[in-house]
């Protein structure tokens, strides 16, 4: 324990991890949904910091860009359009939360116990310099080109799906008109 405390990396870890936990906790318990989104931002940011700690800079910045930059904004738009109760209102939660607590607790206990059992005190040795982006690029194209293409398809599907979902329902007359044009 004291050994662990001496390393500065660990201090940094703690400084980042505790806010992450707190904000994650607030995400799921706050009654204001906009606050929830903002706390998510904090959690995500914290996790980006963790990535940097683990010398995965590219991933960290991708996370900030995509997640915080796009996804969260998307969330905010969604909140606005669905007129989710902005401000404190009737609860965002179910009345009966016990099963969820139990499920969550079970999950946590299981996974943590498993990981502790499996890895014990294994150390991340020699974190070293940040991973060059080139390696990631080469890896994607050389090794994981097929998953890459698949993800591309997913994005395409998402795009088309989003457009379809979002458009107005046309009446048959308008539909004919639109198709003839």
């Amino acid at each position: 324990m004291t050994d662990w405390m001496t390393e500065p990396a660990n201090w940094a870890f703690l400084v980042v991890a505790i806010p992450i936990v707190i904000s994650a906790f607030r995400v799921v318990t706050t009654r204001n949904i906009v606050h929830a989104v903002l706390f998510l931002v904090l959690a995500l940011a914290g996790s980006a910091a963790l990535f940097i700690l683990l010398s995965a800079e590219f991933v960290a910045w991708v996370l900030v860009l995509v997640y915080i930059g796009a996804v969260v904004v998307l969330f905010l738009f969604g909140i606005m359009i669905t007129r989710a109760p902005i401000g404190y209102e009737t609860s965002l939660d179910h009345a009966n939360r016990l099963p969820a607590v139990l499920a969550a607790a079970a999950t946590f206990l299981l996974t943590s116990w498993l990981s502790i059992e499996a890895f014990g005190d294994r150390e991340i040795s020699n974190v070293g310099s940040p991973t060059p982006t080139e390696i990631i690029g080469v890896g994607i194209i050389e090794r994981f080109v097929i998953p890459f293409e698949a993800v591309g398809f997913i994005l395409l599907a998402a795009l088309i799906g989003g457009v379809t979902l979002a458009r107005k329902d046309l009446t048959p007359a308008e539909e004919d008109e639109a198709s003839s044009v």
């Binding site: 179910h94 502790i116 890895f119 294994r122 991340i124």
Partner: peptide
């Protein structure tokens, strides 16, 4: 740095996510 500290953190976040998934009423939440 011990591997497990990250793993436990991650499992904690996951558990909290599960809680939110099951307990929240609003779809966006």
């Amino acid at each position: 740095m011990i591997l497990n500290q990250f793993l436990v953190l991650a499992s904690l976040l996951f558990a909290l996510g599960v809680y939110g998934l099951l307990a929240r009423r609003n779809a966006v939440a």
